Simulated assay, not measured.
Amino acid sequence: MIKKVLAGATLMLLTGLLIINITGNSEKNTGKNEIDVTGDTSVEGVAISSSTKSGLEVGMQAPNFELETLSGETVKLSDLQGKKVFINFWATWCPPCKKEMPEMQKFYEQHSDEVEILAVNVTGQENSLKAVRDFSDNFKYTYPILLDKELKVTEEYMAFGLPTTYFIGTDGVVQQPRKIGPMTFDFMKEMLEKLS
């Protein structure tokens, strides 16, 4: 009889602790990203891999690269010297990327004469090149989509959380802190105005 009482009390105690733990955790939910993408849980995005590197800093020369676009053209960053450039790293399987891409399209349609958007797809992390092509065709994105098949540019720019965007001035230098997470139209406009 005493064993049954002790077993019942232990079960009630464990149940109580479980309830306290569950309700305590739900009260702590701030609505911020609870998946640690970059060491900063306020960042909205998904991780390719964890890294302790912090990415390119403001004032650094943007590393040059050459990548092929979905349409088969070659884009070399150094050829864009003298233009403002947004370099955006993304993937088709990334929900925050999907959230920002219509905003990027709208922004590109209105500001393509002032800034170049290079949407660097992390192709080495995609299911297939066809998935990237179908995604772009389905949503009719017109800004250049570059294919980082070997992930060399992604690694060089330390874009370990997606989406990640760098803001390059006409001098080829990173002029604003990188953005990890989806951008809005207004945010892109603000970044454009801050670049020289």
Results as ranks from 00 to 15, higher is better:
residue 34 E to M: 09
residue 44 E to C: 02
residue 61 Q to G: 00
residue 40 D to A: 12
residue 104 M to V: 01
residue 51 S to I: 09
residue 68 E to Y: 15
residue 54 S to F: 04
residue 25 N to H: 15
residue 51 S to G: 10
residue 105 Q to V: 07
residue 65 F to G: 02
residue 102 P to Q: 07
residue 113 D to W: 00
residue 95 P to N: 08
residue 73 E to A: 06
residue 193 E to V: 12
residue 27 E to A: 14
residue 95 P to A: 13
residue 190 E to F: 00
residue 68 E to S: 15
residue 21 N to C: 08
residue 90 W to A: 04
residue 73 E to N: 08
residue 21 N to H: 11
residue 67 L to P: 12
residue 134 D to G: 02
residue 110 Q to I: 00
residue 180 I to N: 11
residue 66 E to Q: 14
residue 81 Q to A: 06
residue 40 D to Y: 11
residue 96 P to T: 06
residue 34 E to N: 07
residue 146 L to N: 12
residue 181 G to S: 06
residue 76 K to I: 09
residue 36 D to F: 00
residue 50 S to E: 13
residue 149 K to F: 03
residue 72 G to H: 13
residue 18 L to H: 04
residue 75 V to G: 05
residue 17 L to N: 11
residue 96 P to F: 03
residue 188 M to N: 02
residue 108 Y to K: 00
residue 78 S to R: 02
residue 176 Q to F: 05
residue 130 K to L: 01
residue 131 A to H: 05
residue 144 P to E: 06
residue 131 A to M: 05
residue 46 V to Y: 03
residue 83 K to N: 14
residue 168 I to E: 03
residue 154 T to Q: 15
residue 29 N to C: 15
residue 134 D to K: 11
residue 100 E to R: 07
residue 27 E to K: 15
residue 105 Q to N: 08
residue 187 F to Q: 04
residue 105 Q to Y: 03
residue 70 L to E: 07
residue 101 M to Y: 03
residue 163 P to I: 04
residue 124 G to S: 14
residue 138 N to A: 04
residue 97 C to Y: 07
residue 129 L to S: 02
residue 37 V to M: 10
residue 82 G to V: 08
residue 88 N to R: 12
residue 120 V to S: 14
residue 109 E to R: 11
residue 70 L to D: 03
residue 165 T to R: 08
residue 187 F to L: 06
residue 180 I to F: 06
residue 62 A to N: 07
residue 112 S to F: 00
residue 124 G to W: 09
residue 147 L to E: 13
residue 80 L to D: 01
residue 26 S to W: 11
residue 111 H to S: 03
residue 55 G to T: 05
residue 50 S to A: 14
residue 133 R to V: 13
residue 104 M to G: 01
residue 57 E to Y: 01
residue 135 F to M: 14
residue 129 L to Q: 14
residue 49 S to F: 04
residue 17 L to H: 08
residue 130 K to S: 08
residue 99 K to N: 06
residue 182 P to F: 12
residue 46 V to I: 13
residue 3 K to N: 11
residue 173 V to G: 02
residue 105 Q to M: 01
residue 38 T to S: 14
residue 61 Q to V: 01
residue 98 K to Y: 04
residue 192 L to R: 12
residue 92 T to Q: 11
residue 53 K to N: 13
residue 86 F to C: 01
residue 24 G to I: 09
residue 174 V to W: 09
residue 20 I to A: 03
residue 62 A to H: 10
residue 196 S to K: 12
residue 56 L to Y: 06
residue 150 E to Y: 07
residue 76 K to P: 04
residue 15 T to A: 14
residue 125 Q to A: 13
residue 142 T to C: 10
residue 99 K to R: 12
residue 181 G to H: 03
residue 99 K to Y: 13
residue 73 E to F: 01
residue 45 G to M: 08
residue 27 E to T: 13
residue 7 A to D: 15
residue 123 T to D: 06
residue 111 H to A: 05
residue 56 L to V: 05
residue 45 G to H: 07
residue 72 G to M: 11
residue 103 E to L: 02
residue 46 V to T: 10
residue 72 G to N: 12
residue 183 M to A: 06
residue 166 Y to N: 07
residue 71 S to K: 01
residue 93 W to Q: 12
residue 158 M to A: 05
residue 188 M to T: 00
residue 44 E to M: 12
residue 18 L to V: 09
residue 133 R to Y: 09
residue 14 L to I: 05
residue 27 E to V: 10
residue 84 K to P: 02
residue 64 N to L: 01
residue 130 K to F: 03
residue 194 K to F: 00
